[in-house]
Structure formats: C-alpha cells, structure tokens
C-alpha cells in the first residue's frame, strides 16, 4: 500500500477571500508579520501499488481532485506504514 498526499493550492492571482479573512484574524491576534495567507487542500489517498501509479494520480488530479482553471497541485507518494 502507498500513501499519496495530494496538495492543492490556489493559483497565483486567484482571489482567496478565506485567506484574507485568516490574515486579518492573525493580525487581530497580534501576528502582524503575516503578509498573506492562502488556503489550500490536502487529500490523502491509500492506494494499491500499480505499474502506472504516478500517471494515474496525475489523471485523478486533472479530472477531479483539482480544478486546473483555479488550482495547482503536487503530490507525494510514500509507503503506508499502516499496511
């Protein structure tokens, strides 16, 4: 078994009102050094090892997990220690 971590982030230039609200709240807590906050997503997949693992994960990202119009993604593959 593999553990795949897909990190999805908003593309530069795409407005992130959630990130803006987080930044303002951090400022309110006194962390005024925070210049920008942007919110992304992390999706964890447990997967069977297969011959085209990376290709298939890329397909999954392009077809569903990320929206290429607004988001970028990266993923890492590690041994699933639970298996």
């Amino acid at each position: 078994m593999k553990k795949v971590m897909v990190h999805i982030t908003l593309k530069a230039g795409v407005l992130d009102p959630q990130g803006k609200a987080i930044q303002r709240s951090l400022h309110a807590l006194g962390y005024t050094e925070v210049e920008e906050a942007r919110v992304g997503k992390m999706i964890e997949l447990q997967m069977e090892e297969g011959p085209q693992l990376e290709t298939r994960i890329t397909e999954m990202c392009d077809k569903l997990l990320a929206n290429p119009v607004i988001e970028n993604y990266q993923f890492t593959i590690e041994e699933d220690v639970r298996s």
């Binding site: 795409v14 407005l15 009102p17 959630q18 609200a21 929206n67 119009v69 607004i70």
Partner: peptide, 17 residues
C-alpha cells in the same frame, strides 16, 4: 457546467465570504 467543462471558468467563494 463549469466543472464539467461545458462552460469556461470557475465559480469561487463570494468576495465578502
């Protein structure tokens, strides 16, 4: 429709949340 690619672009969270 945008998510299925029938229309271009995407719909994001409202500016004022």
């Amino acid at each position: 429709l945008t998510e299925s690619g029938l229309l271009p672009g995407a719909l994001l969270r409202n500016k004022k949340l």
